[in-house]
Design a protein around this nucleic acid. Structure first.
Length: 558
RNA sequence: GGCCCCAUAGUCAAGCGGCUAAGACGUCGCCCUCUCACGGCGAAGGCGUGGGUUCGAUUCCCGCUGGGGUCACCA
């Protein structure tokens, strides 16, 4: 077979050689040890929570080493592409602090444009590049055309895509595929010419030289030495529309773009032999591989499952809607990615997470379960460390979209709102009232007259006369200029006057000796002022509300 | 089903031949306390299983079991 002729027949329009391309995309000039990584999503929908793990790793590796982190859009499957997904993806990622140095970027008008010298960064615009290498492979007799149509293939195989994969007779299937492959590999130049003349589409397949019985050893940076079977499948390089499959695009793009470290999900592990073979055929230097474990969830039967599309929390935008702030998600992911991150953060509470020395060796090999409890705990800590100003900015942003009523109240008097948010904030042991932004409303609604109402009720058996007497006495003695001690002494005095214990220790020693305690007295006042049995420090609350409103609420409950 | 990956408490995890097997979340109890939110102290709970190797295995090797992934002209 005259492979040169075959190649010319198949790719008559290709006039460049691999050498031409190498010249066009020279090696990057980067300092020693600088890593070039990428995120290469297909624009098929939202950003997946699980996807954040490899992205973060890739981002850290590049930026920690003074390298380059770029975005490549893998839009080789026109069928699945979702309009606007790429732009949305860039925005969402930016929300979480993932910014690219190079690659597909957002233009001011919202469209996608290229930034950098190694583009185009959309695979659909790179067909001419792939074809150069495709032609070379054909010339070398390492790839061949296959005119069997998709429909014919489907009829041939008993496997109906993945739906019925469990009911497949695997042995028969394997045998059938072997025969098919042999048949595919034997063809004549004449038949190719005929097919081309008839305008029949073809796919380009790699001529596999592997033996599935033999093993190859690869080193994965997180998993260590891996023993994988050689590839023996004549997999598709170019689809009938001339667009490459993932495998081929991966090899060509990551080579041309100078990727040093390929970071991707572990679901790619089984196809790694294909990639090794391809790189070898193409004469490309192999990048370092890192296969990141998947994040899992628990299904109805208590089994681990890959966190998949329709699961709650799979869409990164869900977290925003639910009121988790971006810092929380970043923090949670860092915690799972590097087991010593939490410890580091505890020791460096104010340092940005980018100061942390991310270490590949500290990464877990087994897939972990998504834990909402842990996320919530992380969130509480993150929010508690923020300043009142920061919280104000974020909560107004969130409510402007998800709670407009509260939003209008919060921004009416920013200083007032900030004074509320400052309660118990800033010290060594800050309050942790919020997990998500939705927690803010029930926490501080009583500070706004429009939302204030008596929500709780005093416990069964409460002497309402005492409650009223307490309020009356309190209204009489309340002086806004009292310091916190004086203020509380007055409340204790009310307790004593009504036969309630002013000293909690005395009360606990013998509860029967009193009608109640100063805790009950406080509860009467708290309910009148806040409408609730539980609230932050009453003294502070009253000062924020001001004398007038405090007393108005007290007398309203009389 | 073939192939591959994984295996320390409910969850995340230290450990890398000799330890009373860290720590965090969650759970429960106690303390602090005018309630709440913090904070402090404590408790329960773990090396999947069977063989090796070794003076000694959570740690190394093999089998088993379990879980996950993958087997497209999808990525």
């Amino acid at each position: 077979m005259d492979y040169k002729k075959l190649a010319q027949l198949l790719f008559p329009d290709v006039d460049k050689t691999p050498e031409d391309l190498e010249a066009l995309y020279p090696p990057r000039q980067l300092p020693e040890g600088a890593k070039v990584t990428r995120f290469a999503p297909s624009p098929t929908g939202f950003v997946h929570f699980g996807g954040m793990f490899p992205v973060r790793v890739a981002e850290r590796l590049a930026h920690q080493s003074g390298g380059v982190f770029y975005l490549r859009i893998e839009d080789t499957d026109a069928m699945r592409e979702v309009e606007g997904a790429a732009a949305a993806l860039i925005r969402t990622l930016a929300d979480y602090g993932i910014v690219f140095d190079e690659g597909a970027s957002l233009a001011p008008d919202g469209s996608i444009c290229d930034k950098g010298n190694y583009g185009p960064y959309k695979q659909s615009q790179r067909a001419h590049l792939y074809h150069v290498y495709a032609k070379m492979l054909v010339e070398k007799g390492l790839a061949y055309p296959c005119f069997t149509t998709e429909e014919e293939l489907e009829q041939l195989h008993s496997t109906d895509k993945k739906a019925e994969i469990k009911n497949t007779d695997w042995e028969a299937e394997a045998e059938k595929r072997r025969e098919e492959m042999l048949a595919r590999r034997t063809f004549t130049m004449e038949s190719v010419e005929e097919n081309l003349k008839a305008g029949n589409p073809f796919v380009l397949r790699l001529l596999a030289d592997g033996d599935g019985e033999k093993k190859i050893i690869v080193t994965d940076l997180v998993r260590g030495k891996l023993e994988l079977p050689e590839n023996e499948e004549d997999f598709v390089l170019l689809k009938s529309d001339g667009i490459p499959t993932y495998h081929f695009a991966h090899a060509v793009d990551d080579h041309l773009m100078g990727t040093t470290h390929v970071v991707r999900g572990e679901e790619w592990l089984p196809s790694l032999p294909k990639h090794l073979q391809l790189f070898r055929y193409l004469g490309f230097k192999l990048p370092k591989y890192m296969h990141i474990s998947q994040i899992m969830r628990l299904d109805e039967n208590g089994n681990k499952k890959k966190l998949s599309k329709r699961d709650m929390g799979a869409n990164l935008d869900d977290y925003k809607r639910l009121g988790y702030c971006a810092e929380t998600v970043v923090e949670y992911i860092m915690t799972l990615l590097n087991s010593n991150y939490e410890e580091w953060h505890a020791a460096n509470p104010t340092a940005p997470f980018t100061d942390f020395a991310f270490n590949v060796k500290k990464m877990s090999v087994s897939g972990c379960l998504f834990d909402i409890n842990k996320l919530n705990d992380v969130s509480k800590n993150v929010l508690s460390r923020m300043s009142a100003d920061e919280v104000y900015d974020k909560i107004t942003e969130w409510t402007s979209e998800y709670d407009k009523e509260l939003y209008s109240l919060l921004v009416r008097d920013a200083d007032y709102t900030k004074s509320i948010l400052a309660i118990g904030r800033g010290g060594k042991k800050p309050r942790k009232d919020f997990t998500v932004w939705g927690d803010v409303r029930p926490y501080l609604d009583f500070f706004y007259d429009e939302l204030f109402e008596i929500k709780d009720t005093l416990p069964e058996g409460t002497d309402m006369a005492d409650a009223r007497a307490t309020l009356a006495k309190f209204a009489d003695v309340y002086d806004e200029s009292d310091d916190t001690n004086t203020w509380f002494e007055k409340i204790k005095a009310i307790a004593d006057s009504l036969g309630y214990a002013s000293d909690m220790k005395a009360y606990k020693a013998d509860p029967t000796a009193f009608k109640g305690s100063v805790a009950d007295i406080s509860a009467y006042i708290r309910l009148a002022v806040t409408g609730k049995l539980n609230a932050p420090d009453l003294y502070t609350v009253m000062h924020i509300l001001g004398r007038e409103r405090t007393l108005a609420r007290v007398s309203a409950s009389l």
